[in-house]
């Protein structure tokens, strides 16, 4: 049997244990535990799932099954500047898909992935409540409205050295 090297710090493990305990290590609460852990770590690497498995007595395979089933959960860390493109109805009809395609092309990644340098990650979401600005793109906390595919390169340029 080979070993997966778990490189979590003691405080990370304590945090996970704390989260599991706050849900009484109850298997029924697995999704809530995963939400909280993702909130804390930003993503759910294998190592975190292993510790959750250990705490809650749920097989790691089961946890991995849940993580891969729900698109909200991710096993890849978000980039330093997470890019989200709104694919809600208003944005979609005003060309959000083309904007998303342009981001994919420029960054060379798919939705749910992170660039190799860890700078950008790409996700799509549904409606940020700014339909008047459609199509809307978020980079970190900053909102860009009425984005056209041609704007994509300039938006990314702003973060090149940040």
């Amino acid at each position: 049997m080979s070993s997966i090297k778990i490189e979590l710090r003691q405080e990370d493990i304590s945090k996970i244990r704390e989260i599991c305990a706050s849900f009484n290590n109850d298997e029924q609460e697995l999704i809530n535990v995963l939400h909280k852990c993702q909130e804390h770590f930003g993503y759910l690497p294998a190592e975190v799932q292993e510790v959750i498995s250990d705490c809650m007595g749920v097989p790691t395979a089961k946890i991995y099954g849940v993580v891969t089933f729900y698109s909200f959960f991710t096993m890849t860390p978000k980039g330093k500047h997470p890019v989200s493109i709104c694919m809600g109805t208003a944005c979609y009809v005003r060309g959000a898909e083309k904007v998303l395609e342009e981001f994919k092309k420029e960054l060379g990644i798919q939705v749910g992935q992170t660039t190799k340098d860890g700078k950008f990650s790409l996700s799509s979401l549904r409606c940020v409540g700014a339909c008047g600005l459609a199509p809307v793109v978020l980079v970190g906390e900053k909102t860009y409205g009425r984005v056209a595919p041609d704007d994509v390169r300039n938006i990314l340029k702003e973060y090149k050295d940040k």
Binding site: A46, Q49, P59, T60, A61, K62, Y64, G65, F69
Partner: peptide, 19 residues
């Protein structure tokens, strides 16, 4: 034993060990 679980969804769904 808990070695196998359903993972992913749609066409990508399968039964597999963790990760």
């Amino acid at each position: 034993v808990g070695a196998l679980s359903a993972i992913n969804r749609g066409f990508m769904s399968a039964v597999a060990p963790a990760f």
